[in-house]
Amino acid sequence: MRTLSRNTAAGSAPQHAPAAPAAPPVIAVRDVRISDRVTDREIVHGVGFELTPGKAVGIVGESGSGKTLTCRAVLGILPPHFEVSGGSVEIDGTDIATLTPRQWTALRGTTVGAVFQDPASYLNPSIRVGAQIAEVIRVKKGVKRREARRQALELLRAVRLRDPELVYGQYTYELSGGMLQRVLIAAAIAVEPRALIADEATTALDVTVQAEILDLLAELRERTGLALVVVSHDLAVVAQLCDEVLVMRQGEVVEQGPTHSVLHDPQHAYTRLLMAEHEQYGLDKFLTPKEAS
């Protein structure tokens, strides 16, 4: 695992403890506000969190709660006529508002990577998926074709695809949703970013496949110290993976804190509602008696 070994030191740390408390954050979001320029309405009313290496932050909320906009603001890819109207986002200590497009391009992929809900639409259907990953490596790392191919294969192995050689030569339509999401994760971590943003990355997948992807993210985080921002409408998904949770509703962070304390002592009514839905309509209700001991 040469390509992924840069941060192995962090990987040896226990899962729920960040690598070092003093480590500077990879991503620092400070009271970010996002407005629609056309209607002049504020959509996101102040979101803030710090993502240190090896840490995982989760954002939970319904569609329209502003969680995706927040992610997009961090990545500098807000949809047209949306803008960051307050606060700041720092990536590796640099305020992104000061970045030129060229600097942005350099930053994306190398420092921050991202995966989204619909993996098929982020890959070119007429190019073999392996070649697309190799392309990313070639451009970003400036290595030769053969080396890029070798590294791409290694990445496909790293995301636990069963037959990397076979998958390398396949097209998107030949792969299932779960496999495509793995390919995208492989592409996202190709240049060893220090943080990965997963926006509803497992929503469209079957439950068992979702668990596989979440396990993969957890493993990558342990092994390479990858910092994660996990966005989901499902509190349980976020709870499974993250140290810190932000609960968003209608553009507002209604609750924020360490996962453990949010789950055991939710302060806001909306968080309690989310949990009640899970407890009433999820598996928890059935499993609790057995696990209570």
Binding site: T208, A211, A236, A239, Q240, H278, E279, L283, L287
Partner: peptide, 21 residues
């Protein structure tokens, strides 16, 4: 067993990563 172990739950830990693996 994998299905139950994969379902995301809030408190009840149904299975851990190695079990699922």
């Amino acid at each position: 067993r994998l299905l139950v172990g994969s379902a995301p739950t809030l408190h009840a830990r149904t299975a851990d990563r190695s079990e699922r693996e």
